[in-house]
């Protein structure tokens, strides 16, 4: 994973350029007010088409992306990521959702989003998450960690950590702690590892979530016509 930024403090020197994609104007303005001063909102969009256009024009560092969006072919946030596939190297997507449904969340993650947070998140937390995603890390909410544990099972992989369909013992521990509401820093302290190692584990889990062919995950993908 691309861990170019300082990982102990994920805040980069330059302000992060952000595009907010959400169909609720009230939510967009609220979110804009919540984001810290070192985050510049360079564009907003309310539909799939607008979002793809704005992202292509602005080339932001991070896109805050609602999972459910009108327009396009009905694919919502997933379709925006697919439409901006050429920028996936430089632009990172952070999914925002009120939805509790696993298939929605997993669909955007598998499309290429670097994380998922719920819309009830506080201003400080969302700011932190934006910096983290801008730095190339993955952002897991407790709920997403719960989904991952549910999908991959809570038994560790027997052999190599490399297997895509299972989580290693360490990754499971990290996911469990995140599901329990621990921040990355607290996870690091609890497991006696560095924050950078925690981030590496989370990124590895994200990669597995995106690439695994576990039938639970491919089933969701097939239902959302991702394959």
């Amino acid at each position: 994973m691309n861990l170019t930024q300082g990982t102990a403090d994920p805040r980069p020197a330059n302000p992060v350029r952000v595009v907010i994609v959400d169909d609720h104007a009230i939510f967009r303005s609220g979110l804009k007010a919540d984001l810290g001063p070192s985050i510049h909102v360079v564009g907003e969009a309310a539909t799939v088409e607008q979002a793809v256009a704005v992202i292509a024009e602005q080339r932001p560092d991070v896109v805050l992306l609602d999972v459910h969006l009108p327009g396009g072919l009905g694919g919502g946030g997933r379709e925006v990521i697919a439409g901006s596939a050429a920028l996936l190297g430089s632009t990172r997507f952070l999914a925002l959702s009120v939805s509790d449904a696993a298939e929605d969340v997993v669909a955007v993650i598998r499309a290429g989003a670097r994380g998922y947070v719920t819309k009830t998140i506080s201003g400080a937390e969302i700011t932190d998450a934006v910096f983290r995603v801008a730095g190339g890390d993955a952002v897991f909410s407790p709920r997403l960690a719960g989904f991952v544990l549910d999908a991959f099972g809570t038994a560790p992989a027997d052999i190599a950590d490399d297997e895509l369909d299972k989580l290693s013992a360490r990754e499971l521990e990290v996911m469990r702690l995140i599901a329990r509401g621990y921040s990355y820093k607290e996870v690091a302290k609890e497991l006696f590892i560095s924050i950078k190692t925690v981030e590496t584990h989370v990124s590895a889990v994200l990669r597995k979530l995106q690439l695994s062919s576990r039938h639970e995950l491919t089933k969701w993908a097939a239902e959302r016509r991702l394959l």
């Binding site: 459910h68 509790d100 449904a101 696993a102 298939e103 989904f147 549910d150």
Partner: peptide
């Protein structure tokens, strides 16, 4: 939401899959 008709929620994965 399209998700509404699908069984979901963190505790109910198996029926959904």
């Amino acid at each position: 939401a399209p998700a509404v008709s699908q069984p979901s929620g963190p505790g109910a994965f198996a029926p959904g899959i």
